[in-house]
Design a protein around this nucleic acid. Structure first.
Lengths: 114, 114
DNA sequence: TGAATAAATAAGAATATACTAATATAATGA
DNA sequence: TCATTATATTAGTATATTCTTATTTATTCA
């Protein structure tokens, strides 16, 4: 299986998307567990439109995908992105955000659709 | 030897520096061969001040260091940067820019101080 | 020393980015 | 159906970014 490398413009555009602490946080979080918008709002203490706008950038860049579950929209990594292996290699070294998700859970603020 | 991981803010700030095609190009190029400013000007077809300003950002972020050799200032990766391993892992997947350096060489536009 | 070359810096302008506030859309459930 | 909740979108604003042009600083060499 041939591995696809990003050209330099594509690589820069992906790094630009990741080069914002909110978006990097979102990507790291959903690499560990899919989440919905209101969870990001809690997690990053930002307004809902601000979060939504970051998510749209990530979606426009093809890094994330969304799945509606009832009234919530869950975001997850788009594993079909041609350079997702590279993205994974990058975020692997970024500290886990699981602890923050656990805190949400403790506060009863996690959304569960099972 | 303990490996140092960037916290998420630091990681985002490094990715932001890399998330520009000129700066990513500079970093990739000097990961293969140190270069001076006038070579970047040729390589990226940009004005000298524009290149200089990108280099300053990279230097302020600690990613590159400079060495004066006569009238030229050569830039190279700052191998002492605490997260240089991570940076290397990122740029490893970015296509080599050696060919472009070779073209410069052919045009007699490479600077050599040996 | 003075001309030429290399690079940095500063000031200003155009554009991009990341917010806020207000509003629209979509789904749920009484 | 209507109130509620979740999310997206829009318009506007403040700030950041990336250039350009002009100038300054540093080095070389005749």
């Amino acid at each position: 299986m041939k591995k696809l490398y990003p050209n330099i413009e594509t690589a820069a555009s992906i790094l630009k998307l990741l080069g914002d602490k909110t978006r990097l946080g979102i990507i790291k979080v959903i690499s560990e567990q899919e989440c919905c918008v209101c969870e990001f709002v809690e997690l990053f203490q930002m307004t809902q439109p601000a979060v939504s706008q970051h998510l749209r950038k990530l979606k426009d860049g093809g890094l994330v995908k969304e799945t509606r579950k009832g009234q919530w929209i869950f975001y997850s990594l788009n594993l079909s992105h041609p350079h997702m292996d590279w993205v994974h290699a990058i975020i692997r070294e970024v500290p886990s955000q699981k602890q923050k998700l656990d805190e949400l859970e403790t506060q009863g603020k996690r959304i569960c659709c099972d």
